[in-house]
Computed example of a mutant assay.
Amino acid sequence: MKKIVKKSCFVCIFLLLLILSGCGFKDIDKRIFVVSIGIDTASNSQKKYDISLKFVIPGTKNEPDDFLIVSEKANSISEAVRMIKTKVDKEIDFGHAKVILFGQDLLREKLPVEINYWFARRRDIQQIAWVGVGKPSALDVLKVKPKSEQLPSNALFLALGKDGSETPYIIPPFYYDFKKRLTEKGLDPMLPIIQAKESLFTINTMALTNKKKMKTILTSEETKFLNYMLNKEGKSVLKVNKGKDMIIIETQKVKTKYNIITPPGKQPYIHVKLKVKGRIEEAIKAVHNEKLTHYEKESEKMLNKRMKKFLEKVQKEGVDPIGFGMRYRSRHFNSNDWEEWQHIYPTLKFKVQSNVQIEDTGLIE
């Protein structure tokens, strides 16, 4: 009886082995790794997109790592990847792709929704990849090789990940956040603009989009105010002018709160409160402790005015990167809350109240 059972087990195992297919595993030396991806509008072609993949080429003991950029024009990223496979000798691996760039001209026309779905469906695309806008094109940014960069695209990783420089002018969204903003009512996408300049790149402005295309570009100062509203980075500087006097405050902590007020029968408004703590980093002349209150009041007036102007610009463009609409919907539980918000948002007023505390004059006495 035991022999019959054993023989039956062996027969079953043999049959299972016959129907199982190979797992398709390839050794690491037979793979070529993508570190960043660029999507541009295809020029002088009937195709829609120009897809660029930046591959890392491992160096030897005496040679540094290098990179290879391969581009292909196609109507979809799936088609482009299949064609790029015919141009390289190894299996393409997206497991290390940490930056996805859209060309500025592409976003001016429309957001490539079908490409975003491709990124979401690919299990080997990291959902923690950063997303940005390449200027003048995504390919131009991929070609930049800063002298300080030791690994291909590592300079972008450090800048967007803030493992390197810390600045209020960079607000790097992850892909999962970008994807959520494409579909979430009351919250619109925002993307940092990465501008290629010879052997370096500059990141100090933001592109704001609705669900269809790019609507406006924020200046460096407006990007900083967006950072304040999102409570992303508290370290920055505020320049305050009063006649011939000028001081620059190094902010060490910035905290922002807001409430959406809809009083019955009255004008709805958003009450924004900013609390800033810092010290004087630069001044035309010496600033003593007894004058700190004066400069704090002037700083508050300046901040109230500029923040209100920034919020009104965003409102005028009909975009909502801060998520006012999502906040409103979360506090109004009815079937037409979204329609109500669409009616309210264009007519909202902004009331900004800031509190600036200068804790140190920066002088050595």
Rank of each mutant, 00 (worst) to 15 (best):
I4V: 13
F178P: 01
I128V: 10
P173M: 01
L142K: 04
M246G: 14
L187D: 12
G134C: 00
P58N: 14
K224Q: 15
K143L: 11
P346A: 01
K47N: 02
K147I: 15
K305R: 13
T223D: 03
V144Y: 04
I364N: 11
N75F: 05
I37L: 10
I69F: 05
T293I: 07
K87D: 10
Y228M: 12
L16R: 07
R329T: 10
W118G: 13
K179P: 02
K145V: 15
V356K: 08
L111W: 08
L274V: 10
Y117M: 14
G318K: 01
V237W: 09
Y328L: 05
L226E: 09
V144P: 06
H288P: 01
F157D: 07
V70P: 11
M206V: 07
L363F: 06
F178Y: 09
L303S: 10
G38L: 01
G325I: 03
E296N: 10
S36A: 15
V35S: 00
Q342D: 07
L53W: 02
R331D: 11
I4Y: 06
K135G: 02
T41I: 11
E317I: 02
T219M: 11
V81C: 08
A207T: 06
I193R: 05
Y328A: 05
K224Y: 12
K242M: 12
A155S: 13
F14T: 10
I249P: 09
K98G: 04
S165T: 15
A80Q: 10
H343D: 09
L363K: 06
V276A: 04
Q46D: 14
I13H: 05
W338H: 04
V254C: 00
E91C: 08
N336C: 08
